[in-house]
Amino acid sequence: MAATPLHFGDSDRKLYGVFHHPEQRAANAPAVLLLNPFGEEAIRSFRIFKQLAERLARAGRPVLRFDYYGTGDSEGDCETVDFDGMIRDAATAQEELEALSGARRFVWVGLGLGGAVALRAAIETAARPTQLFLWDPVLSGADYLAGLRRAHIATLSAALDLPQSRIEREIPEEISEALGFCLPDRFCAQLKVFDFVESRKVAREIRLIGSEDTVISARHEDALKNAAAEFRQYDSGSTVWNSNEAMNAYTIPMDVLDCIAGSAGGRS
């Protein structure tokens, strides 16, 4: 199956991406933009997004997956990562996808922090997806940072065989790194003020995909329902994607891929 790796974007902010060419493209088929989660989650989801892209391409959809600046194979050091920059990168990737695919309808799939990027980019930039798949999306930046801190402590405790209480004493409340990735001050400050309570429409349709242990507050669910003319929910029965076990066992939550590939932009 044809996939073209490429660099795109401004010369001082080069992004790495892979464009998946559609097989037997259907008329008016939408193009799909995949928005990565961040940090360790991006590593754990790499194979999932690659497989999703291949499935969508087989179903006739052009797909672009990419790394934000300062992440993956894109340019930039981890100290340069910032949330606002990710929004700009999403808009840049959308422009690239438009140019590569010639499509006029677009579907975005945002996983983890990629869900927050999708919501903000749909509100703050000229990019307009018709359909948004939000998979275990981050809807509160403060909660997300608190979760990263807990995960960082638990990981170091297990890896170094030390009590969590001791690790916790050494990790400040205001963390500057988690799970091997930098959390620059600017990035954290931008995340802390993100809380999705938007009342404007961001897409015609939103599909919220939840893994087994995902909890979405009623407040955020209401906001998502208000943000699209059509709102649907899908609860995955697969093993949670975001675990070492899932990654090491090459586990892919196939039901979620079925859900997305089967309904991205309607059946062609």
């Binding site: 402590i153 297990a158 890896a159 065989d161 076990e245 090491n248």
Partner: peptide, 19 residues
């Protein structure tokens, strides 16, 4: 239960060094 478990790796012992 003070040490986190669940990432499938205990450190330092045994004849296998990684999963």
């Amino acid at each position: 239960g003070d040490t986190a478990s669940g990432n499938g790796r205990r450190t330092g012992g045994g004849d296998e060094i990684d999963q």
